[in-house]
Design a protein around this nucleic acid. Structure first.
Lengths: 177, 177
DNA sequence: TAGCTCATGTAAGGAGTTACATGATTGA
DNA sequence: TCAATCATGTAACTCCTTACATGAGCTA
């Protein structure tokens, strides 16, 4: 359950409204923790009820826009959570389930689905490499920047591994058919 | 939502009862799709209601043990699902959220939690390598075995990547403090 | 007969998903 | 004024998690 703390982090980086946060969750933070605007609004209400953030109406904006900022107790909560024990996250990988299924009932046309998936991961890989080229060359000096770069590199490795795996599986199924 | 199809696959590999399946989900299948016995019992009831599996009471067993086997319509459903389009799965990675949080509020004692996590991944890596040594040397010939080996190798790569990532993060935080 | 293990469940609640609802402002 | 967009939400549902409940056989 990291959404509240992902939101706290995002709001410390830059205060903003619910929809602005939803936009950021389609990029940056969203690359490793997705959330819809419905979740975000619900969670912002909870964070405010807990006294961790404060929302103030934005005058002159469309609708009833509210800008949120993190309060000292919110920072404290984020610090507490950050060092709390990290349980290994349960893995739920549909692709592996499909391959195990293929192994017992195959051959099937699974390769087509895997080809699309590989393309998706290669796209993601290019996006991440673009972000790295723009934001992290030359390599950063500050501690915060180095940490963010590390997270990005993990994303790059993940996408590379996934794309390569799909292609290996496709090759294996093609050879055996 | 792969649990029903993970169960169908497991039951084709070897018919069994709910608790036997729960045991297998603590190993093999469970390494990439976890499930508790509560989930499994509920899902088995659904699969039986859908006419995909059939459960028969096991005479002479403790309690009211039921053994399940997959019916032809269940095999058909599994084949249908296996080739259905695989949407890229949303990533939810708590560790990355913690590192982003560390970047904005750090330095913190996050390294301790990461060290424990790295140890967990190294353990998993050894388990997988053991399975590979026992079951996949020499490399298998059959298509089904090759696919299962591929899935295992993906697990090995994943654990290796995770452990290395944790260690890199720890090193970075140590150098900067 | 008391406690342990095997075996199957129920109940309550949290988190996420999908579809829909509402109101304000902007631009054609 | 009508549609699009910005902005915030409700409602219903599924899945997963945690804790607890129940009963049957085995063993000390």
């Amino acid at each position: 359950m990291s959404l509240p703390h992902a939101l706290l982090t995002a709001l410390i980086e830059r205060p903003g409204s619910g929809l602005e946060l939803a936009g950021r969750f389609d990029r940056s933070i969203g690359y490793f923790w997705q959330a819809t605007h419905q979740q975000i609004y619900r969670e912002l209400a909870r964070l405010e009820a807990a006294g961790w953030i404060e929302g103030t109406a934005v005058e002159g904006a469309k609708g009833r826009k509210r800008a949120y900022r993190v309060l000292p107790s919110g920072r404290k909560e984020l610090a507490r959570w950050t060092v709390a024990g990290q349980e290994p996250m349960p893995i739920r990988d549909e692709v592996m389930v499909r391959l195990r299924a293929e192994a017992v009932i195959g051959p099937t046309a699974l390769a087509d689905a895997l080809a699309k998936l590989a393309a998706h991961h290669r796209e993601r890989l290019e996006i991440y490499r673009g972000i790295e080229a723009k934001g992290f060359t030359p390599p950063p000096d500050s501690r915060a920047q180095k940490l963010q770069h590390l997270v990005l590199k993990a994303g790059i490795e993940y996408e590379r591994l996934r794309a390569a795996f799909c292609e290996e599986a496709i090759a294996l199924m093609r050879d055996e058919d």
